[in-house]
């Protein structure tokens, strides 16, 4: 089996160690003898035809605006990609970029969500409960965003157990739509969340290989230790 991961504008959207997510996806696939090719994608080599996992991160305001402007030419491609159930991970500014802004700036408007910016940044460690009624799992991370996102009718990615989430009142964070995972939990989201990392890999493999059933488990003791430390730390606070 093999998987192609495309990372959008990694040189621009590299604010909080997004390369950690790529490293995790790549390593976890390779340990299971799944070949991985990672492409750094910009407007010069934009193509979603053979993409299995698409990653859109966050960056500095100035650089994020630059990327947003360049991506406008491809918004229909990205929309089709998502509607076709292909796997995408959009983080932080990359999540907000998919909708519209309440300011004069124009977003990609691929999703019907809107972001309003407030002076006070929502910042800190965060724990959310994700998954379905039958299969719940916690995701830990760090959020740092001025945007408050109204996700309207979309399903949230998780319920906030500790932290702020999409806004500081409703208690939900991010959104899931088909196989798109969008969240404020920035940068290296996957290292401490091996369950989520494997879910993303599994979905990509299921899309591509009818015969695929499940991933074999890995030794996640370091991952669990780091994950549990955040949960414990927040319980103490």
């Amino acid at each position: 089996m093999d998987i192609k991961i495309k990372h959008l504008y990694p040189d621009f959207l590299n604010l909080y160690g997004d390369k950690g997510n790529i490293a995790v996806l790549k390593t976890r696939c390779e340990k299971r003898n799944i070949n991985v090719t990672v492409y750094e994608m910009t407007k010069d080599n934009f193509s979603l035809d053979d993409c299995d996992i698409l990653l859109l991160g966050g960056g500095y305001e100035r650089e994020q605006k630059f990327v947003l402007n360049e991506l406008k030419a491809f918004k229909d491609d990205i929309k089709d990609y998502i509607e076709n159930g292909k796997v995408m991970l959009a983080l932080c500014g990359g999540f907000e970029m998919l909708g519209s802004y309440e300011s004069s700036d124009e977003g990609l408007e691929i999703l019907n969500i809107s972001t309003a910016f407030k002076e006070k940044r929502l910042m800190g460690d965060i724990v959310i409960e994700c998954g379905t009624e039958n299969e719940k799992y916690d995701v830990v991370g760090f959020e740092n965003h001025a945007g408050r996102v109204d996700i309207k009718d979309y399903t949230p990615f998780g319920r906030v157990k500790h932290g702020f989430g999409n806004d500081d009142c409703k208690g939900f964070e991010g959104l899931v739509y088909k196989n798109l995972f969008a969240t404020h939990l920035h940068g290296p989201l996957l290292p401490k969340n091996p369950v989520l990392a494997d879910l993303i890999i599994s979905k990509a493999l299921k899309n591509k290989y009818e015969s695929f059933e499940q991933l074999e488990p890995l030794d996640d003791s370091f991952e669990q230790e780091a994950h549990n430390n955040i949960v414990l730390k927040l319980k103490k606070e």
Partner: peptide, 9 residues
């Protein structure tokens, strides 16, 4: 700095 995600940079 409470955010240590920069370790990945």
């Amino acid at each position: 700095g409470k955010d240590v995600t920069w370790l990945w940079d």
